[in-house]
Structure formats: structure tokens, C-alpha cells
Design a protein around this nucleic acid. Structure first.
Length: 457
RNA sequence: GUGGUUGUAGCUCAGCUGGUUAGAGCACUAGAUUGUGGUUCUAGGGGUCGUCGGUUCGAACCCGAUCUUCCACCCCA
């Protein structure tokens, strides 16, 4: 019985042309990561549940794919927990492993586990898929690639500056015409909560403020009220809702607003350092914007928070990142500040597709295909193919002596760049008809000339 | 996880208030064209109408469940 083939929701197959384009993105990112001093590592696609659970907040836990225990391990299910309706505990007893949700937490685990083999500050990059049990939507997949660069073991702010330049360089190299790097600092958000007198409601406040441009001032006030903030507290925060101006103007206003908050002032100082450095050195295409409503990101961030938006397309953030002071502390290693960023390769792919920004070269197929005219010609061409391959030219021979039209159409569909036509006449003269499939131009030349010619393109 | 939406040929979609053998374009195969593709012409192959169940004399069409798509929320790359 023929089964209708399909794949799980939120996942995709990739055709050769798509892989070529994705490779272009990955290579561009890798190139700059390496240039900035990051070395690649890899970690398993699944981790122990206990490594991941509880690191991303309640929402995050819900989105982690669990891996059901197999075989006799199923017998370890904690039925008592089920009876007690302790679903979290019951689930943990059923699934000891889980697919990684991001690359940062596994990296923290990695650093703690291999601390004796690493020199700090340790800089690594990592390009691997992650999985989230989220509802698929535009630009949201259940399986997608993250491209992370992190440095752990230093609280120096020069890394924040470096990451701004990494965003700028990579996205500029990908020819993205316009994008905005939004930056904020968790300490500023803490300062806001402190000034309002509701420090314990930091998360609620930041989540609500984050939605400002979506639900408006009234919506934010409504949400804050629902979360139990006092009218006075809301009144104190309210001036932030009509916040605008240049980065400098915003900084000045915030310095005033957070005058009484030590932690808030610290956040502003950190931010100021980044702005000063970036202004000194200059960006290519990026626009750096201080956005106090930028609050999202994982709740383990403690300092800088980054998010990058591609302008002119309907797409969520294409990159994110931030500083986390105590992530390794969760695995028993204190005093290791880390900071890192992540490129959402799949979203970048969607943006580049929509804006038609992939270079033409990524769509090119095989360099050279020989037409097959029959037994004698086939044997002769096999030698020529070996010669071109030995000289580093991607090449092949059509497998049968099908009609020329069919062979040409096949070459055309595969986006073959050149076709070599070698029949009786050419064999007699020791020549090859080389046809450029794009221009249609055709020229007769020796195999040596073909090799020289194609190695040049 | 909440609310809504979608599913007909490989692809994009028609298919009237339920009524014989479910259509088109593109793609595919063959021929017009025995050594020249991305243009034409002709013919042909291909569909358990997402899946399972129900209502009905009769279901692609109505009802239920489930999966999937897309959208809003939650959250996020």
C-alpha cells in the first residue's frame, strides 16, 4: 500500500539549490566568526533533560522536545507522580533526554565539563540545528539552524562591541541592504523596575514594555494592571512609553529617569561604552539603536541584550544575543561571565529569498557535461571526463546516447554551465565543441584549452 | 498551549444549492525534428478528492474526529 509521503510539521526538505544557498549563508557567517577569533565546536543534538529543563523559563520548558525512554527504561515511569498529578515529574521519569532548544545552554554545560581543557576567555562558534515544539508560522520552524558565537570567561565590554561589528560585517556581506541592531541592557530594565518600586515584578514589566509597539501604550498599561502593578508604579513607568529621539537623547533621558537606581546607572554606563566605541570605529550598513522596549530574549541575560531586524520585510528578529553572567553557575562553575550572539540562518534565508539577494553563482549547477553520442564516443569521452576531473573541473558524461535534444534539456534543467559536444567529427580532429549554456556561444578547442578556459571561470 | 484557517494530478488552482466516467494551466512521456537547451505544435500517462468515521438512494461538496497549512495570541531565531 503506497503511503502518501510527508514530513513532520515545522520541518523541511532542502533541494540542491536550497542547500547551495544555505551553504552560502553558513560560509559567510563562518568566515567572519573565524576572522573574529572564534573556533568551532559541536555538541550532541540531544542532551539530558535535566541539562535543559528550567533554563528557559516556563514557556521554554513547554517548547522542549522530549525523547521518550525506550525499552525497559519505560518501566522507570514514576506512576506515583502521575497519580499525584505532578506532570513535570512524571514527564521527567518518562523522558531522560531532550532535543536541544538552543546552543547557549549546551555550551555552558560544555564549558563546565571541559573547563580544564579550555583557556579563558574561551571563544567558540557553533552552527547546528535546534528544535522547538512551537506552532509553525511564517519564519518559525520546529527544526532550524542557529549560528552562535559566544565568549565565556570575561566581562570585558569590548566583546559587546565586537558582536555589534560581527552583526554588521556578516549581514553586510550577505548584501542585506538595511537592518537595525537593537540594543538594550538588562540592568537598565532592572533599574526601571527599581525606580517604579516593583523590583520583584521585573519580568512582568519587561514583557509588557516589550509589546509597546504592538499593543500600544494603553495595552501595556492594561497588561501591567493585570499583572498587579500599583497605579503609582505604572505612573512612574509611563514616561517611558513616549520615548523617542536619537540614541544620545534617549541616553540623556534615561540617565535622568534612572538617577536613583545604581544598577540602572551601571547599565547605562555599559551601553554608553558600546555606543562610544562603535561611533569611533564606524559601521558599514547597520543602524545601532538603543531600544528600551527590547526585553525579550532568554531570561538568563543579565547585561547587554541584542536583537537584529531586517528592514522592509515582514519577519521577526533574524539575530539575537546578550550577556549572561551566571549561566555556567547553573552547572556549578561560578564567576564565568559570558556573552554571545546567534544568527537565525533559516530566517535569514527567507529574508534573502524575499529580497532576491542570493548571488547568481549560488544557483549554478555542474560546470561541464559531455553529450553522449554512442559507444565509441562514450569511451572516448570517459577519458576526457577523467582529464577534466583530474584538473579540478566538476564534470560528467550523459549516461546514454539519448536524443541530443533530451540531453541538452537535461543539461539546461540542471543549470549546467558548459556542454561539451564530441562526436565522430570532433574525435577525428581531436577537438571539442564547447558550448556556453548561458550565452549559447560555441567554440571548437582542444581538451587542454577547455581545461584552461574552465579553470578560469 | 488558546482561537481561527486550509487540504482536489508532481506544482498552482477550477469544480454551481450533494446527482453519471472529477477539469485546466504548468510539469512529465512520446512524436513533428537521425548533432544543439531555455520558443512552438500534436498525442499520451497520471487523482483512494489529507486520513478515519458518520448522515444520505447518492458525498470532493453536509457532520464529527484526527493530521497538515497559514494567521493571530503566548513565546521566539
Amino acid at each position: 500500500m503506497a503511503q502518501k509521503p510527508s514530513i513532520p510539521k515545522g520541518t523541511r526538505d532542502f533541494l540542491p539549490i536550497e542547500v547551495a544557498r544555505r551553504t552560502y549563508i553558513f560560509d559567510t557567517i563562518k568566515h567572519s566568526f573565524k576572522k573574529f577569533g572564534f573556533a568551532p565546536i559541536e555538541t550532541p543534538s540531544f542532551e539530558l533533560s535535566s541539562t535543559l529543563m528550567g533554563k528557559y523559563g516556563e514557556e521554554g520548558d513547554r517548547l522542549i522536545f522530549r525523547i521518550l525512554n525506550s525499552g525497559d527504561k519505560m518501566l522507570k515511569a514514576d506512576l506515583q507522580a502521575l497519580e499525584d498529578k505532578n506532570l513535570a515529574r512524571f514527564a521527567n521519569s518518562l523522558a531522560e533526554k531532550a532535543l536541544r532548544y538552543d546552543l547557549t545552554v549546551p555550551f555552558a554545560r560544555f564549558v563546565v565539563q571541559h573547563q580544564n581543557d579550555l583557556s579563558f576567555p574561551f571563544k567558540r562558534y557553533q552552527i547546528q540545528p535546534v528544535w522547538r515544539a512551537d506552532r509553525p508560522q511564517h519564519g518559525r520552524y520546529q527544526e532550524f539552524f542557529q549560528c552562535d558565537a559566544d565568549v565565556v570567561g570575561s566581562d570585558s565590554l569590548i566583546y559587546e562591541v565586537d558582536f555589534v561589528f560581527l552583526f554588521d560585517e556578516i549581514l553586510s556581506n550577505l548584501q542585506l541592504p538595511s537592518f537595525t541592531i537593537k540594543i538594550n541592557n538588562r540592568k537598565i530594565l532592572s533599574g526601571i523596575a527599581e525606580v517604579s518600586g516593583e523590583s520583584d515584578k521585573l519580568i512582568d514589566i519587561t514583557v509588557a514594555i516589550d509589546k509597546l509597539d504592538k499593543i500600544g501604550e494603553e495595552g501595556v498599561i492594561k497588561e501591567l494592571t493585570e499583572k498587579g502593578l500599583s497605579t503609582e508604579a505604572i505612573a512612574k513607568i509611563q514616561p517611558l512609553f513616549s520615548f523617542s529621539g536619537t540614541n544620545e537623547e534617549k541616553m540623556d533621558k534615561m540617565k535622568e529617569f534612572l538617577a536613583t537606581s545604581e544598577i540602572g546607572q551601571k547599565g547605562l554606563e555599559e551601553l554608553q561604552f558600546v555606543f562610544d566605541q562603535v561611533n569611533d570605529l564606524g559601521l558599514q550598513k547597520a543602524e545601532l539603536e538603543f531600544d528600551i522596549t527590547l526585553a525579550r530574549g532568554l531570561n538568563y541575560y543579565t547585561g547587554a541584550i541584542f536583537e537584529v531586524k531586517a528592514n522592509g520585510v515582514k519577519m521577526g528578529s533574524i539575530c539575537g544575543g546578550g550577556r549572561y553572567d551566571d549561566l555556567t553557575g547553573l552547572f556549578g562553575m561560578k564567576g564565568m561571565s559570558g556573552v554571545g550572539i546567534s544568527f537565525g540562518a533559516d530566517r535569514i534565508y527567507d529574508v534573502l529569498t524575499e529580497l532576491e539577494l542570493f548571488p547568481k553563482e549560488t544557483d549554478q549547477g555542474l560546470t561541464l557535461m559531455f553529450v553522449n553520442f554512442g559507444e565509441k564516443e562514450q569511451a572516448y569521452c570517459m577519458k576526457l571526463v577523467k582529464a577534466t576531473r583530474d584538473n579540478g573541473i566538476d564534470s560528467e558524461l550523459y549516461p546514454t546516447a539519448a536524443k541530443m535534444q533530451k540531453q541538452m534539456k537535461y543539461a539546461n534543467d540542471r543549470k549546467v554551465q558548459y556542454v561539451a559536444i564530441v562526436g565522430e567529427a570532433e574525435m577525428a580532429e581531436n577537438l571539442i565543441q564547447l558550448k556556453n549554456m548561458e550565452t549559447g556561444e560555441q567554440a571548437e578547442m582542444s581538451i587542454e584549452e577547455v581545461i584552461v578556459h574552465l579553470n578560469r571561470v
